[in-house]
Nucleic acid binder design. Structure first.
Lengths: 177, 177
DNA sequence: GAATGGATGGTGGTCTGACCACGTAATTCA
DNA sequence: TGAATTACGTGGTCAGACCACCATCCATTC
């Protein structure tokens, strides 16, 4: 025997098993998955390892645990990635410039989406970006924008709205496949 | 006593502590963080809880553990999110659209930044976005784009490059303060 | 002196069993 | 019948014990 196969840690195996379980049982958002103890039993893996896997998935926002009730699948829309990663990213790049730039990009893109979908009515002109983001019908974009906005601090966004709107109307997103 | 303050699970506290530690000690990629047992000691938290937090961060690719050696900070570029989340995206249609849209927005914004700074030479026309993102000099933008790109999967981005470039040149970001 | 190789201690990986805190459902009792 | 109590299942946490692995030190050996 050259190498002992170096088994990929148990807790990764648990995650894989859960993924399989979700697929074969056709589990959906809100469905309950087996308890930690049952998983531990069925997979012949210590409960602590099961918990490590579940905690990781929870941090990602893929599952939700409720004490006394159980563990449930979560809608991916509510994923925790952005806030989480954000906390780590911002430690590195504190540069306010970066934040402001990205925020502007997201807002511009949001307006461009709306313009493209002809969802911009003249009445929208004085609305805030919270509203625009909602109309853009893109939860991911909305989530990222909210996080960025938190870090960007308050600014007089309305001052730039008209300019941004004009710019947005010019943009044509290339179609894909 | 009405409510017992419902402390936010220990393992989240550990993550927060680690983030703080990274900041105050100015830790960088490759640096070693305290051992599980030491963290358990210093934070007065059971080792299992510490492990749950570390495993979660490892799954995200934010840290790397080497048996017999210790736990180390990792370069964020090596994050593990992609294959993981992918397996959980069972009902994916809406989400895929979201990801594609955000990706396009980020890329467009990147080009707009470059155009604004007059950093677009004609020689750049055939370069990939990895390159553009680097030139844009915005680590935050680059990081977010990398995450999104992984989710989006491979596409023929070069097909859209010329169009995007043209659109980007038209964009004028409103100046701020 | 230099190279070998074993002993030692530290680290992550895992398991077990024991509690606690919380919800729910069944049971009991008025 | 209805309210209170109990029992049970669940996640949350802890402590201790092993194992596997790695680096280091140090005595042995050449």
């Amino acid at each position: 025997m050259k190498e002992s196969a170096r088994q990929p840690s148990k807790f990764l195996a648990v995650i894989a098993q859960i993924q399989t379980m979700i697929k074969t049982d056709a589990l959906r958002s809100g469905d309950k998955i087996p308890s930690e103890r049952e998983l531990s039993d069925r997979l012949s893996i210590g409960r602590s390892s099961v918990r490590e896997a579940l905690r990781a998935l929870e941090l990602l926002g893929l599952i939700e645990t409720r004490r006394g009730e159980g563990t449930f699948l979560r809608d991916f829309k509510d994923h925790q990635l952005v806030p989480l990663i954000g906390a780590f990213l911002f430690d590195q790049d504190q540069k306010k410039k970066d934040v402001q730039e990205v925020k502007a990009i997201l807002e511009l893109g949001c307006l461009a989406l709306l313009a493209q979908k002809n969802n911009l009515t003249s009445r929208d002109q004085q609305l805030s970006f919270d509203h625009y983001m909602e109309k853009a019908d893109n939860r991911l974009l909305e989530n990222i924008w909210m996080i960025i906005s938190d870090y960007a601090g308050s600014d007089k966004e309305n001052e730039r709205l008209d300019e941004l709107l004009e710019a947005a109307k010019q943009i044509q997103f290339p179609e894909r496949q």
